[in-house]
Structures are given as C-alpha cells and as structure tokens.
Amino acid sequence: MKRFLTHIVLFLILFGISSYLILSQADGHTDAFYTKFTTKKQNALIIGSSRAAQGIQPKVINNLISNLSIYNYAFSRVHTPYGKPYLSSIQKKLDSNTSNGIFLVEVNPWSICKQKGEVLDLTYFKEQDSFLGEVENPNSNPNLTYLLNYYNGRYVEILTKKGKNHHGETLFVHNDGWFEVKLEDSPERTISRIKSTVKSYKNIRNEYEGKSNIRMDFLMKTIQFLQEHGSVYLVRLPINEEMLTIENGLLPRFDSEIMDISRMLNAPYINLMPSRNNYKYTDGHHLNYESGQEVSKIIAELIKKEKL
C-alpha cells in the first residue's frame, strides 16, 4: 500500500506541476475575458458590456490624459448587466486607496433590463452563477478558478492559440483589458454579419421584458461606489440604425432616464448615439478598430474638457 500511495502521489505531483505550467501560459489569446481576471487591482476603470470591451481603447485615452492608466473591465451583455455580482467584482478589481480615478460607465438598454422569466431579486442575479459571480479573486495570475471552472475551450488551445485565427483575424485581450477584434473583412462579410446580428437581436429583444428597477438601482449604486473613488462618466456608445430601432423598442425613454440619473448623481452623460452614422461597426453594434480609436479619442477629449 505504501508503495502504491507513494507512486500515486509522485505521479499526481508531476501531473499537477505540468498542468500548472500549461495553465500559466494562458493570456489574452485564451478567450475574451480571462486576462481581465489576471491583472492587478486598478485605479481607473471602463465598465460595461462587450460594446465597451471592444469599443473603448484604454491606450488611446491614457495617451491623451496624463497620469491616467485606465483599465477596461467591461465584459458582455450576458455577464455584466448592472447588478450585485458586477458591482462586487468591480469592488474587488478597484484599488480601495484610489481617490481620484476616472470611471467610464457604459450604459445601454440591455444592461438595465430584465429577461422574461428571469428570477431577479436582491438576493439572486442570474449572472452570479457565471465567472463574474464565482471568481473570488479577479487579480490573480494564473487565475485557476477561472481556468478550471469557466474556460470553455480545450486546454491545448492555451498553447496553440497564440496568433491570428485561421481567418487571419486578431482576437486578443490586451494587458489594459481592451478586447481587440480586428477582422480582415470584405464588405460582403460585414454586411452579412450585420444582418445576422440584427436578426439575432430581434429574437433577443423578445426575450426581454423591459426595464428592471433592481438593475437601475444597481447602476446607481455602482456609480455612487465609483464616485467615492473619483469621477464617473456615463457613456452611451453608438450603434447602427437597425440596432437602435430594436433598442428603442425595448426602452424608448432610455436616454431621458439616463439623463435623470446623470443629473441626480452628478455624473456627466456622454451620449455618442447622435453621431452613430460617422462610425463603422463589425456587426451593427460593435465599433470596428478604427472607429473604436476615434470614439476613445472623443471620450478622452470630452473628459479633458470636463476636468478643466
């Protein structure tokens, strides 16, 4: 028995070390979220959905505002509607000593709405069952909790997915949290992707019931929490016309409600929707690389103006 146990333990140690070494190779190529859970606590954050994750480029803002190192901690419509789990994750990601940070809170109707049949009360939010609620420490590298429980691929891909994908496209989360999606697209492919996204969002729209007071409450709580550590700016990123029609159908008074919050909490509202026709989108609601750069620049300029 002693021999058996010794051999088992030695084998498991070897297996454990090898596995750990493989997992520690995970990086921005691994998936759209992993890296965000591996960096240190931050002093300035971009929060919101995938629109912000892909559309707001921290390096552009950091270059224009001196002494700023803003970090993109935005995820997706599914994972980060405003609620207790996201707020709690933000609290863990933010350095509690921060006093003069800058926080961009991206808002859109999906992030404050409730899905049909969704159990939503002050004690339960559906996203708490995802990595957002379950990863206790979003500042650990490698983040084993995430990789062992929430990584969807095969671990071999941690080693093999290190460059452009087989379409020659870049999908990479940078060290500043920005999710770079650089597609080598023909106009036809873009049109077809926009068509398919609009179609799928028409279906998604039907899954939503309407505004949730609980989520609205948590949006305000999130703003108030961040205001304890610096200045908060509410940002509505542009989307194309068809997507806007769907969103207006879901929440027609969205802008005025956000304006109310903005006034009430004294958090400036940067609404880029009116200039939506000036930008290009990969699929109708995610800004492409160049437009994202432009939008990030505009946001930085507005913040600078506001600060002055």
Binding site: F15, N152, R154
Partner: peptide
C-alpha cells in the same frame, strides 16, 4: 511505461472539453 501513462494523462488534460 510511466512516461507513456503520463502522456496519456496530459492528453486527457489538454484535450478535455467541457
């Protein structure tokens, strides 16, 4: 032999899906 078993174990780890 042990090395082969180790390779099988690592293949399971690397190629294991959800």
């Amino acid at each position: 032999r042990l090395f082969i078993y180790y390779l099988i174990a690592m293949t399971i780890f690397l190629y294991g899906g959800k």
